[in-house]
Amino acid sequence: MTRGAPIPETVTLHVPFCVVKRGGRKEMRLPEGIAPPHRPDDALVKALARAFRWKRALESGHCATIAELAAMEGVSPSYLTRVLRLTLLAPDIIEAILDGRQGPEVTLARLMNGFPERWDRQQDSIGG
Rank of each mutant, 00 (worst) to 15 (best):
L48S: 07
V106C: 00
E95S: 05
A47C: 02
E59H: 15
H38M: 01
L13A: 07
R121E: 04
D99W: 04
G74I: 00
S60I: 15
A35T: 15
A96C: 03
A5T: 15
D99T: 11
R56P: 00
G100P: 11
G23R: 13
D99Y: 08
V45E: 08
R25G: 02
P6N: 11
L58E: 01
P31H: 01
T65C: 06
F115G: 15
R118L: 13
K46P: 03
E9N: 03
P36K: 13
C63H: 13
K26Q: 06
A67Q: 15
D99Q: 12
F115H: 10
M28Y: 09
P16K: 12
D124L: 09
S78C: 05
T65F: 03
P40I: 00
Q102W: 07
A109T: 12
V106G: 01
A71I: 14
L84H: 11
L88W: 15
L58P: 11
R85G: 00
E105F: 05
D120I: 09
F17W: 02
R82V: 01
M28G: 12
C18H: 12
L89W: 09
R82I: 00
R53W: 10
L30A: 06
C18N: 05
D41P: 04
P36Y: 04
V19E: 05
P31Q: 02
V20D: 08
G33S: 01
C63A: 05
E59K: 15
V75T: 10
E105V: 13
R121S: 03
A70M: 12
P6Y: 11
R22F: 01
T2N: 05
T87M: 10
L48A: 13
H38G: 00
V45K: 05
T87G: 10
E95W: 02
E73T: 07
P36N: 04
E27W: 12
G114C: 08
M112D: 03
M112Y: 06
L84S: 05
H14Q: 10
R53I: 02
K46E: 09
M28R: 14
P8N: 07
F52V: 07
R3D: 13
F115E: 03
R50P: 01
V15F: 09
L48G: 14
Q123F: 12
K55A: 09
G114L: 05
T65G: 11
C18G: 07
D120P: 00
E59S: 15
